[in-house]
Design a protein around this nucleic acid. Structure first.
Lengths: 126, 126
DNA sequence: TTATATTTGCAACCAAGTTGCAATAAGTGG
DNA sequence: CCACTTATTGCAACTTGGTTGCAAATATAA
């Protein structure tokens, strides 16, 4: 056996994602677990979940890293595009279940595409 | 009069963009001017060029900020999409002159979209 | 040429993220 | 149920990108 022990910390971090379909920034996750584990641990656990294909990541508008559960995401779908949305008012981030075509570009071999939509979420549109 | 003096530093930073259509990361720009000006100055000048509409910015794959000249970019086109490309091998970044449609999303008011394509540039495709 | 307001340099700071290493605690096997 | 091996964690120190406040320098208008 090479790895993967079921620790308290791992359970706690996973619970957050299990209870909600939201995306969470690393900053939020470190904050919400600050009494039960070290920030290094949070970073390491998130890394691991990503490698295991349980979570996918993307960058929000300030270059902050966000994590979200891979619901209807096969590993293949990580390559095709599902865009993410971030609200300019409240900062909330969502995965959108829309498919966007990856444009073809002459002389370039495109492997991956990231799309971030910015605007106002339903709660912030007045 | 409220601002905008023509200083040596401003000329030097602008020259870089004037001579090339490439995009440059802040890190590169600070590095290439490190003998003639302070990093704070570089940051401030870039900020200014952006506000003046001479440069536009976007985030590369690691959340690093990149600047590029606004060639055929009206201020309107900043809202519509012109995607950016970053090479996974050499790290080079380009503005693509392709138009991508911003998808409509129910219950969301989309103001802006960022699209980053990742892959291999022509020089790195073997 | 001087006065004044914009720019700059500097040093100190902040936040996100990483690293090395010793201490802790899962999960065997006996 | 205990002992042992090795994955996991905590901690402190560090790195990197970026920002701030303030005093010194320097463009420009008069």
């Amino acid at each position: 056996m090479v790895s993967s022990r079921q620790t308290q910390s791992i359970r706690l971090v996973w619970e957050v994602f299990d209870r909600s379909d939201n995306a969470f920034s690393v900053v939020e996750l470190v904050q919400m677990h600050k009494d039960s584990m070290n920030k290094t641990t949070v970073y390491r656990i998130l890394d691991r979940f990503e490698k295991e294909g349980k979570l996918h990541t993307f960058l929000g508008k300030n270059g902050l890293k966000w994590y979200a559960k891979c619901n209807n995401c096969s590993s293949k779908q990580h390559i095709d595009i599902h865009p993410h949305f971030q609200c300019n008012e409240c900062g909330k981030v969502e995965c959108l279940s829309i498919d966007v075509k990856i444009p073809k570009v002459a002389k370039h071999h495109i492997e991956q595409a990231n799309m971030l939509l910015l605007g106002q979420c339903d709660e912030c549109v007045v």
